[in-house]
Every structure is written in C-alpha cells, then in structure tokens.
Simulated assay, not measured.
Amino acid sequence: MHGPASSGWLLVALCAVTGAYCLARMRSGAEGQRSAAGGEALMGFGMAAMAVPAAVFTPPSWAWPVYAAVFGAAGVHALWAARAGAHHLHHLVGAAAMVYMSLVMAGSPAHAHGRGGSGVPLLTGALLLYFAGYVLLTGVRLVPVAAVAGGGGPAGWGDRPELARACRLSMGIAMVAMLLTL
C-alpha cells in the first residue's frame, strides 16, 4: 500500500496478530466461531501481506492478480456461506474490497497515489463509507458485551465473543486505513 512506512508496519502487525487470533478461534468448541474464523484469518493475513510498505518490499507484478484470485475465491465462498448467516455478507464485501485493492495496485506504479484523477474514486468512497459504518457499529456492539462461558467452565480463547468482535473491529479499522492510502 502507499503511505508512510511506520503506519504500514503498524497495519502489518495489527493484521497479522488478528489473523493469528482468528486461527486460534478455528479450534473453538462453538460452531459459529469456527465457521467465521477461517475467512477472518485469511482476511487478516492477506491484509498484513498487502500492507507491507512499498518502500521496503515491492511485490512482483504477478502477486496482485494472485491476491485478486485468492480473494475472489474467498468472496465466492462467502456468497455461498451467506445462505446460512448475514455475517458472511460482510465477508463478501471484505473480499470484494481486497479484490478491488489488488486490481488497483496491479494497475498503479509503485509510488503513485490514486489513479491520476482528482478526488476519491466512487467505489473507493463507497467502500470507505461501508467500512467506516461497520467500524462504528462494531465498536458500539463491543462496549456492552460480557464474556459468556460455555458449559460452566471458563471460556477458551476461541470462545470469547468480545475478543472476536475486537478482532473484527481492528480489521475494519485496518481496511479503512488501507482504503485511505489507496
């Protein structure tokens, strides 16, 4: 992504830690946690890889179409899974945003900002509005959540709904930051 190296590294760290926690959630005893955690881990690690500052590492030209293909497949999977729950529609929008960013990055020089026009492109603006709204809504939902222990014992790391929401919030914030630097 385009932008200062220090903020790029912070995004890399945030997204990688979030992806790692989502992998831990895949071992949860709750089916709802496991079903969403895989897609969220892919999103976290993909965002971390995409956020590596261009001044440090410029991916080869073939990397962007590979990102687009991987997240396109994740989008198809989210569309299929959306039959079971509305949260998968958010995964679909996230995957579509990653495909869009991959395609924009594939078509732009390593250190150029935007596509040469003035202002924010319409799709980027729409995605920014969506993810800003998602961040605000998720933040509001995070505040009153109490940890729910399953089966009388203490909840495992993968079964903590407030941690899952905090991860979703951090990935939403990271998506906003990445879209702003696009």
Rank of each mutant, 00 (worst) to 15 (best):
M1F: 03
P4L: 14
P4Q: 13
L10C: 11
L10P: 00
L11S: 11
L11T: 09
V12P: 03
V12F: 11
C15E: 03
T18Q: 01
G19K: 09
Y21P: 01
Y21Q: 12
L23A: 14
L23M: 14
L23N: 09
A24M: 08
M26A: 12
E31W: 02
Q33D: 14
R34A: 08
R34I: 04
R34Y: 04
A37T: 11
A37R: 10
E40Y: 05
L42W: 06
M43S: 07
G44W: 10
G44T: 11
G46A: 11
A48V: 09
A49N: 00
A49I: 01
M50S: 15
P53Y: 14
P53A: 13
P53E: 10
A55K: 08
A55L: 07
T58N: 02
T58S: 14
P59Y: 13
P60D: 08
P60E: 07
S61H: 08
A63N: 01
A63I: 10
V70Q: 10
V70H: 13
A73F: 11
V76M: 12
A78L: 09
L79M: 04
L79H: 00
L79V: 06
A84Q: 13
G85E: 12
A86M: 00
H87T: 06
H87S: 10
H88N: 12
L92I: 02
V93E: 09
M98T: 07
S102A: 15
S108E: 13
A110S: 08
A110R: 07
H111W: 13
A112Y: 08
A112F: 07
H113T: 08
R115A: 14
G116I: 12
S118E: 14
G125N: 13
L127P: 04
L128D: 09
Y130P: 01
Y130K: 03
A132T: 15
Y134I: 00
T138P: 02
V140G: 05
R141G: 15
L142C: 10
L142T: 05
L142H: 07
P144C: 11
A147C: 07
V148R: 05
A149F: 02
G150R: 02
G150L: 04
G153K: 06
A155G: 03
G156N: 02
G156W: 01
G156I: 01
D159S: 12
R160K: 07
R160T: 02
P161R: 04
E162K: 01
R165A: 15
R168I: 12
G172R: 03
I173K: 00
V176M: 04
A177E: 06
M178T: 12
L179W: 06
L182H: 13
L182P: 00
